[in-house]
Write a protein that binds this DNA or RNA. Structure first.
Length: 227
DNA sequence: TCTCGACCTGAC
DNA sequence: TCAGGTCGAG
């Protein structure tokens, strides 16, 4: 889960050799790791909760989706459920999720699950065995999944370690470090592609690992950072 | 290819 | 006002 079989100092050394600007982030957040989930379905639908949303609500929504799965145990009075399979999520009525304050994602989450089902239950897992670019392209064909979610799913669910999801935080870090002339510019499709391509080229197979530091730093400091 | 507005909710 | 965005129209 925490990739303890990976030597983080070795990875940091390799990243620093090609991207010395990462040094202060490694010093500040020493020990930060990128997690390795064993359940691709959970990560897939977890990220479907994230668009245009905040972490507190994302957690509530992910927990609610989990409640549709088989009960594993009760710990300190709290039910622990296995994350449900794709078919279960595909069958959740939109009204149920609306009632749980899912907003417009009440429609998109079951819809994406239905699209996945038509590709077969093993489809998500199968994307682990194709090149990152192919997996990303396939994920983007789902209505409701754009380039950012595709990158998140590729990295965190499928373990394509070169993926660099450009969310609002990585976008701010990218502009600050590499593209100051784009300060305050919104992310368009083409800018997204440029940033993601640039960061993958710069960090190579450690793109996912490196972006975690930039993400966490910006997450902590974006409100107070003055330029 | 870019720009906009819409889309749910709730914390700050 | 804005969150770990995406879609459709123009």
């Amino acid at each position: 889960m925490f990739r303890l079989d990976w030597d983080s100092s070795e990875i940091e050394t390799e990243i620093l050799a090609v991207a010395p600007e990462m040094a202060p982030y490694f010093e500040t957040f020493n020990g930060l790791r990128i997690m390795r989930s064993t359940c691709s379905t959970e990560i897939f639908f977890g990220f479907l909760c994230t668009p245009n949303n905040n972490l507190t609500r994302i957690l509530q929504m992910a927990r609610h989706l989990a409640s549709y799965g088989a009960e594993l145990a009760v710990v300190d009075g709290k039910r622990i459920n296995r994350f449900p399979d794709v078919a279960t999520i595909a069958a959740i009525p939109e009204a149920d999720l609306r009632a749980k304050a899912f907003g417009y994602r009440a429609a998109t989450i079951p819809s994406v699950a239905q699209q996945v089902l038509t590709r077969g239950e093993a489809w998500i897992e199968s994307l682990k065995n194709v090149p990152f670019e192919s997996a990303h392209a396939e994920l983007c064909k789902l209505k409701g999944v754009g380039p950012k979610l595709a990158d998140c799913i590729a990295l965190f669910a499928l373990h394509h370690m070169e993926a660099v999801p450009i969310d609002t935080h990585i976008w701010q870090a990218y502009v600050r470090l590499y593209r100051p002339e784009w300060k305050d510019k919104p992310i368009t499709d083409s800018r997204y592609r440029e940033a993601a391509t640039f960061l993958r080229a710069r960090f190579g197979n450690h793109g996912g690992w490196a972006q975690q530091y930039l993400f966490y730093d910006n997450m902590l400091n974006w409100r107070t950072r003055k330029e």
